Simulated scan of single mutants.
Amino acid sequence: MKKITYIIILFTLLLSSGCSIHEASGKTPDYRPLVIAHRGASDLEPEHTLSSYKKAIKDKADYIEIDLEETKDGQLVAIHDDSVDRTTNGTGYIRDLTLSQIKNLNLAKGEKIQTIEEIIKTFKLSTKYYIETRENKNGQITMEKQLVKILKKYNLIDRNKVIIESFSEKSLKKIHSLDSNIPITRLIRTQEVRDIDDKALKNISKYASTIGIKAKLANPTILKKAHKHDLKLHVYFTNSDKSNNEGKLIKSCYKIKVDGVFTNNPASAISKLPKQTK
């Protein structure tokens, strides 16, 4: 009886002191950030192709990331650049080409540019989607209504299968106004990160649940600032990071416990996670 009383008293003291059971036992909860396949497994397969997405899903990525551009006839297609020059055997700006014209072009390995709806039809609820919107060349937002309509059509919002990201605050606020249940990530450019303060983070938290920054800018201070405003921190890598050892950089991000990482190679990113989280 005395032993039981002692345990109850100890448990009460731990709770009142703010100490968790994990802390009392010397154990810490597993750390497992989201692993987001940047343009699919784009280190291993051509970016934004079905093969790239399939590889990412096979390699256990939590999300496949999809950049959107709008065609001349108003179709939303998965491509990073505003032109087809770099990734296809054709030339021209997406905004000046119809979907039919774009479908006549080939990506690497003979694959085709996909619309967002074609991608969702292919993978349905078997994966989660991290979708980037953007303004057009005139600074206008034109893709948001159509995108939300597609997401609702395939039940992705209700099933918690989608996150929307953008550097455009205007686009994200529009998404939020269309459906406040969609999780939103506000991407932040380098100079903005360096100047960011509590006021800016508080404003972002009104419509977003996450901020996204370059991995090399991540540090405990910015992570603490984000969490103070109930914002998660996701980090992404740039082409220059490859020459600066992305593997080492991602480990440093894991060390400070960022909430998510964008990666071109999900299997590699997962292999570098702290041992207890594998």
Results as ranks from 00 to 15, higher is better:
67 D>A: 03
80 H>C: 14
120 I>S: 06
110 G>S: 10
92 G>C: 01
72 K>A: 13
113 I>D: 01
113 I>T: 08
120 I>E: 05
89 N>F: 04
117 E>R: 13
107 L>P: 03
87 T>F: 05
69 E>Y: 08
106 N>Q: 15
96 D>F: 11
91 T>L: 09
59 D>R: 04
57 I>C: 00
101 Q>A: 15
95 R>F: 09
108 A>W: 06
126 S>A: 13
126 S>R: 10
85 D>V: 13
118 E>I: 08
100 S>R: 11
103 K>R: 15
126 S>D: 14
65 E>H: 11
107 L>S: 13
106 N>C: 10
70 E>W: 03
116 I>M: 00
94 I>K: 10
58 K>T: 13
66 I>Y: 08
123 F>R: 05
97 L>H: 03
64 I>M: 09
68 L>A: 06
63 Y>W: 01
84 V>R: 01
76 L>H: 11
87 T>N: 06
111 E>S: 06
74 G>W: 13
65 E>T: 10
74 G>A: 08
127 T>Y: 11
60 K>Q: 15
89 N>C: 04
98 T>C: 15
85 D>C: 06
114 Q>I: 01
100 S>N: 13
106 N>I: 04
98 T>G: 10
57 I>E: 07
127 T>K: 06
71 T>V: 12
127 T>W: 13
99 L>S: 10
81 D>K: 09
109 K>P: 00
70 E>F: 02
127 T>M: 12
112 K>T: 01
119 I>M: 08
112 K>D: 02
59 D>F: 01
91 T>F: 13
66 I>V: 10
124 K>S: 14
111 E>C: 02
84 V>A: 04
106 N>K: 15
75 Q>K: 15
66 I>W: 02
73 D>R: 08
113 I>Y: 02
102 I>H: 10
74 G>Y: 11
90 G>S: 12
124 K>D: 15
113 I>F: 08
84 V>C: 09
65 E>M: 05
92 G>H: 03
96 D>V: 09
113 I>P: 11
97 L>N: 06
105 L>M: 15
101 Q>C: 06
109 K>E: 11
115 T>H: 05
102 I>P: 14
90 G>T: 12
79 I>E: 00
97 L>D: 07
60 K>N: 15
72 K>G: 08
110 G>F: 04
101 Q>F: 11
98 T>P: 11
118 E>S: 12
112 K>I: 01
110 G>A: 02
114 Q>C: 13
123 F>S: 07
